Amino acid sequence: MSYLDHFNQAHNADVSGWTPWFQHDALLGYVQDSFKLRGIEFGLWRESDQGLIIPNEPEVALNQLFARFAKETYEDGLLWSWVGEPFPVKASVTDPTRFVMERTLTAPLGCLTFGVHLNGYVRTRQGIELWVAKRSQHKPTFPGKLDNMVGGGQPAGLGLFENLVKECFEEAGISETQANQAIATGTISYRHTDGRGLKRDILYCYDLELPDSFMPVCHDGEVESFQRLPIDEVLSIIAKSDAFKYNCNLVIIDFAIRHGVLTGDNTPEYAMLCERRNQLGG
């Protein structure tokens, strides 16, 4: 397995076989036949030459409509999990939130979604060491996988940095004062499917240099353990395995590029890795 393999795995979706759905002329997502047909039966959308069109209703009415659809499909077993967290529905990064829906519905409906991921690291005499989290075995998604020190989806009603500060404390016990020192470093984007849903994700990435004495403590039960590893050891794990959650590989590779650990001299695929950090289209 190579670094590039992880980008291929993350950006693996061909949407040509999916049906797009719209609000007026604004593309909001893609669905497969099971959710397409259920949505037609439910009155979530109607078919047109363009694709599927949702009702011309105000924001509050659409919030309620999609909430009822999420509840019904979850109770019927079509929607496979539930978080109870509203996510914003947008046509693009710059688009205002049009309405909200249950977080777990965003993948089967192929919505554009956002997240915040943080690389917590320590500078030592030997070089950079990276804090790595191991996801709880009780997580509904990717249980037991290695993860970034902090990461979370972007819910409705919070700013990106506000969400990062919240996630820092909940997942790693990083204080607000410490979290406020995090530096925004760019984005990672991809279009991924596991066969059940479509993840059109934009991850906002941050770096946070931590003191040697810092010890992370998880407060929300989502992390089983933490370990601090030399960056070369972390990269070796990535290069040889799929031990990390698929998108975290990309965030760490990006970190290694920006900090000069991976270079054009020591990494033959360096230029392609740089180019593919943002791959999201349509």
Rank of each mutant, 00 (worst) to 15 (best):
F7A: 10
N8Q: 15
N8G: 11
Q9W: 08
H11C: 11
H11V: 11
N12K: 00
N12L: 06
D14F: 01
S16A: 13
W18R: 05
W18D: 04
T19F: 00
W21Y: 08
F22G: 04
F22I: 12
F22Y: 15
F22Q: 02
F22K: 03
Q23M: 12
A26H: 13
A26V: 15
L27D: 01
L28H: 06
G29P: 05
V31A: 03
V31D: 01
Q32N: 07
Q32H: 12
Q32T: 07
Q32C: 05
D33F: 13
D33W: 14
S34W: 06
F35T: 01
L37G: 02
L37P: 06
R38S: 10
F42W: 02
G43L: 04
L44F: 00
L44M: 10
E47D: 10
E47V: 09
E47I: 08
Q50C: 06
G51C: 08
G51W: 03
I53M: 14
I53G: 01
P55C: 08
P55Q: 08
P58Y: 01
V60M: 11
V60D: 12
L62G: 07
L62R: 11
L62S: 10
N63S: 05
L65M: 15
L65D: 05
F66D: 01
A67S: 15
A67T: 15
F69W: 09
A70I: 00
K71N: 10
K71C: 03
K71Q: 13
K71D: 05
E72H: 11
E72F: 07
T73H: 05
E75L: 15
D76T: 14
L78H: 09
W80Y: 15
V83T: 08
V83N: 00
G84A: 14
E85L: 11
E85W: 07
P86M: 10
F87Q: 03
F87S: 07
P88F: 05
P88N: 04
P88I: 11
V89N: 09
V89F: 04
V89W: 00
V89Y: 02
K90C: 08
S92T: 14
S92Q: 09
S92E: 08
T94E: 08
T94N: 12
D95C: 14
T97Y: 02
R98P: 02
R98Q: 13
R98V: 02
F99S: 07
F99I: 01
V100M: 01
M101S: 03
E102A: 04
E102K: 09
R103F: 06
